[in-house]
Design a protein around this nucleic acid. Sequence first.
DNA 1: CGCGTTTGACCGGCGC
DNA 2: GCGCCGGTCAAACGCG
Length: 336
Amino acid sequence: MEGKVALKKLLEVQEKACVSNTDALNWTQEPSIRNTLGYTLLSLSLNNLEPPQSHEQQPLNQLALLQIELEELKKENQNLRSMFNEITEHYAALQSKMNNQVTPQEAKIIEDQAFEASCKKARVSVRARSELSLGDGCQWRKYGQKISKGNPCPRAYYRCNMGTACPVRKQVQRCAEDESVVITTYEGNHNHSLPPAARSMACTTSAALTMFLSGSTTSSHGTTFSNSDLFSSLSASTHYPSASSCPTVTLDLTQPSKDYLKFPSASAISSNHSQTAPLSLHAYPQQSEGLPSEKNFPLVDVLSAAITRDPSLKAVLEATVSSIIGDAQNILSEHQ
DNA sequence: CGCGTTTGACCGGCGC
DNA sequence: GCGCCGGTCAAACGCG
């Protein structure tokens, strides 16, 4: 029961991190990525705060456990700080390169990427077990249902019913291989404020998309991130259904995640991009022997790319992690 | 009776 | 140009 209380408080902290940081720091560009950095970094703390297995344990044992967990959190905090330092160095190097060594060809690539990002009507797909019954907090109105080729399960079409003429659509379909898995695909951006539950989901999904868009700098066909930290509780894949259609980021909540506190420091890179190769963010540990067209990035590279796109992210990231770690430790103190 | 769901028709994009 | 397929529309239907 105490674990549930702690979890609830942590979720409140998550919400606080998403909202208050947004207001205080005036995030006007790509807020989703910053919000979700807070959200996901919190999940690191949350994963570290697993409640006691039995609520009949001696209070003394609980105190000792909490103290151990607090020590682990401190270590994690140190890891995060060292990560920031590394990010800062990468950022400085990248910025220096951008300012001093941008050739006309590179400038064109950057311009193309910006155009590509603005033009793509990207979608975010969430795979989850149906028993999880993940509500997204929005009100949806069903406007169609269709049997799609290759899947006997019908695909339901919903549009957001919360705002006036909200352009957001979602599709819900059961997986053909495993009917216990429900695939929910979101498309478009809400033109209205979201309730907290919806905002958390939107933060996660949109940041996954932003991560992809900011990280897919080498190929528009296939790229893979190895990123245990930003998506510690899920894995994600992105693909282009066809060469000209929009990319789809898939967050896979059906796979277990482990070793979420490990910070990969090296990247394993392979080539051979293909037109339909998946782009994936996997929960750590990464299966490096995967598809031949994969290309892996460590967390630092991903964050560096994001910071390069938006330098103000650095300060926000620092503030968010400091806030989250502080809040997590406060919660621990409250339970002591 | 109002609102949401169902379901067949319709439309547009894409590949051959 | 034709057919396939995914997505959307809108009338019919059901439920509270």
